[in-house]
């Protein structure tokens, strides 16, 4: 075993104690705590004030204004109205949503499978395999775009050649909106599946072995115990991955920017990409800020719903 059980830190064991206990004892009350907790969170909030809150307020102001002749003019809700009536922004949201709906589940299922395989007891080279699966998360943009354009080239790309070799029709990855979305989904999944599987693996290793042994005595096969034990035990980790992936995919920018430029016919234009274009292609920072607030609101609502559904509101 590469992963000695004794490495399990106290904290992790403690994490498995019943939560009621934690809730009850959680926190030391008033007098002794004093200013200490405030001092401890102070660095975070000082940095937060300076480099997040201030810019946020600034861009909130921007979202109600328009740059004209070097001045910021207050234009009320114009930017928001423009966005809600611009079919392109709607389309970019829709694209983002469609990619999200397919990509996040596919990726998490794949990641869970990979993690389960990596968790096989007698597996050798586990470390190397983990590194291999983790690597895509750190690909640099230049390589990313070069390799994917090479693979998914419609006439000479390896993917289409493989399809033809299998007797299938070549796919219009770049010229057909549907397939271009699939291309984006493939790329995103390629980049983040391994990362998620490493996280899920860490969850798998915390499932008590006794559970499997008991199931095995009851005559459950590995497939059945996967669904009966592994999946339910993994729920918290999967939720964690799901929320992070949802936030990430809603902010998707790199893939359409680098791989498809949002095309064909804006079929892969993402919401953040729309904002980026507003800001850096047409210098419309007001519009970009307004759009960013809309997207942030959507992300906040979705995250809240996911948390509610899964844990009754306790994060």
């Amino acid at each position: 075993m590469i992963q000695p059980a004794s490495e399990q830190p106290a904290a992790d064991k403690a994490a498995q104690q019943p939560r009621v206990h934690l809730q009850r004892k959680h926190g030391f009350s008033g007098k002794r705590a004093g200013v200490t907790p405030y001092l401890f969170v102070l660095p975070f909030f000082l940095l937060f004030l300076a480099f997040i809150l201030y810019p946020l307020i600034y861009s909130f102001v921007l979202s109600f204004s328009k740059w004209k002749s070097g001045n910021m003019d207050f234009v009320g809700l114009d930017n928001y109205i423009h966005l809600f009536t611009d079919p392109l922004f709607g389309k970019s949201l829709l694209n983002t949503g469609m990619i999200l709906l397919v990509q996040v589940p596919v990726m998490l299922i794949l990641a869970t499978c990979i993690a389960a395989l990596l968790n096989s007891e007698r597996l050798k080279f586990r470390g190397l395999l983990q590194v291999a699966f983790f690597l895509p998360a750190i690909i640099d943009l230049v390589t990313y775009s070069l390799v994917f354009s090479m693979f998914f080239n419609e006439s000479s790309g390896m993917v289409n050649q493989l399809l033809q070799w299998l007797g299938l029709e070549p796919v219009a990855w770049r010229t057909d909106g549907f397939w271009a979305k699939i291309l984006i989904i493939c790329a995103l999944t390629w980049r983040w599946t391994g990362y998620n599987s490493v996280i899920i693996l860490s969850g798998l290793q915390m499932i008590p072995k006794e559970l499997y042994e008991a199931a095995s005595i009851d005559g459950a096969g590995s497939v059945r115990s996967f669904f009966a034990i592994t999946v339910p035990q993994l729920k918290p980790v999967l939720l964690f991955c799901m929320i992070l992936s949802t936030i990430g995919t809603l902010q998707i920018f790199t893939e359409p920017y680098v791989l498809t430029s949002g095309g064909p016919n804006n079929e892969t234009l993402s919401a953040i990409q729309y904002l980026y274009q507003a800001a850096f292609k047409t210098f419309n920072f007001g519009l970009a800020s307004a759009g960013a607030y809309i997207i942030m609101t959507i992300i906040a609502i979705l995250s809240y719903i996911q948390l509610r559904l899964s844990k009754g509101g306790e994060i």
């Binding site: 070069l146 080239n153 419609e154 770049r174 430029s261 095309g263």
Partner: peptide, 11 residues
């Protein structure tokens, strides 16, 4: 030949 990017034209 379809060349949607700078790289693909080079290719």
């Amino acid at each position: 030949v379809n060349t949607p990017t700078w790289d693909e034209r080079i290719r």
